[in-house]
């Protein structure tokens, strides 16, 4: 295949993976809609479903007072049927996501092969976004089993879908050769680390958002058993588990970010620009992100800052992270030497 073929393949694959992400989002939305009134106990029972439902019906048949019990059974089996439907939708969503991730990978890889000479697929914002979202999906799928992430599915799939759409519509850029500053092995090391950390912080941030949402919801419906027992928020892990998962993901991402932003980045900057650290806007914000996440880790060990406040700090960190990636380029583009900035950086200053 020629470079041009790979270019076309990449564009088509991106469109196709978008379709599958879309199916996944729809499936998870259907799961959410069906599950709005399914009580938790039914849902948990649905795996051991057949016997449980059978036993209940049998009990109802044997029991004398048919009236009440029968009504209950109807409701129960309705709920059980819904629960089974939910499981089906969830499976469709998961499978679509896996397929989408495969095609997404093809899109990213062929983008790298489309360049002449071939190169890593993160030479500009379009490619960076495409690759970072792939990392989010892969991270989510990798942890799906281990941490039982089915509750995160609607959030992850819609995030990836929306980001990819914005990427294709707003940031698309034809394949070109890498600019000089990008031609270095440190590019691969620095950017892989930055993308991995960005993906992980994003997933951690999702857990933190859900923590805050669930906390408010719990407080609001504190004495409303019915509400607390059904629906998406009820199916989320407990606050303790959400907080723990958020912490773990952040703790995984933080050293990688440290490496990307404060070790590999400076080494590369030294080679390219003759200084380790220059307080360029991009560097300033990478540092700010680092400090905010350090504050997050501290907050989790400080009385009165756990849980809610820590989650807010984590989201603040995420905001600085994405601002650095997107905002800086648009607001201070000409002031940044970093290559994802739009304007040619090798202007003369001083």
């Amino acid at each position: 295949m020629s470079h041009a073929d790979f270019d076309m393949l990449s564009n088509q694959a991106l469109a196709f993976c978008g379709v599958f992400y879309f199916i996944a989002v729809v499936a998870h939305l259907a799961e959410w809609a069906v599950g709005r009134n399914v009580p938790l106990d039914v849902l948990n029972g649905v795996k051991a479903d057949a016997q449980a439902a059978g036993r209940r019906t049998a009990a109802a048949a044997v029991g004398g007072e048919a009236g009440d019990v029968l009504v209950e059974t109807d409701e129960d089996s309705d709920a059980a049927a819904s629960a089974a439907k939910m499981a089906r939708y969830a499976r469709i969503g998961l499978i679509s996501t896996v397929v989408a991730a495969g095609i997404h990978f093809v899109a990213v890889a062929s983008r790298g092969l489309a360049a002449d000479p071939i190169r890593v697929p993160w030479g500009n914002m379009y490619e960076f976004t495409m690759t970072a979202t792939l990392f989010v999906t892969i991270g989510y799928l990798a942890m799906y089993r281990r941490y039982g992430l089915s509750w995160l599915s609607p959030v992850v799939t819609s995030f990836v879908l929306i980001t990819l759409m914005a990427d294709a519509l707003l940031l698309y850029d034809p394949v070109v050769k890498l600019r000089d500053a990008l031609q270095s092995p440190w590019l691969i090391i620095h950017v892989v680390a930055a993308i991995t950390a960005t993906g992980a912080f994003t997933i951690g941030g999702m857990a933190s958002i859900l923590y805050l949402v669930k906390e408010r919801w719990l407080a609001k419906h504190a004495d409303d058993e019915g509400t607390l027992n059904a629906g998406y928020l009820a199916r989320l892990p407990s606050l303790l588990q959400l907080d723990r998962m958020a912490y773990r993901v952040h703790a995984f991402a933080f050293p990688i970010w440290t490496f990307a932003a404060l070790i590999a980045g400076p080494i590369w900057a030294q080679a390219a620009w003759g200084r380790y650290w220059g307080w360029d806007p991009k560097e300033v914000w990478a540092f700010i992100t680092w400090v905010v996440y350090a504050a997050y880790l501290h907050a989790r060990a400080t009385a009165g800052w756990k849980g809610r406040n820590a989650a807010i700090i984590a989201l603040l960190g995420l905001a600085t992270l994405w601002f650095n990636f997107i905002g800086i380029n648009f607001f201070f583009g000409s002031g940044s030497q970093h290559s994802y900035a739009e304007v040619a950086p090798f202007l003369l200053s001083r």
Partner: peptide
């Protein structure tokens, strides 16, 4: 670079 969003950047 003569094409694309990066047009005008030195490669």
């Amino acid at each position: 670079i003569t094409t694309g969003r990066s047009a005008g950047q030195a490669s």
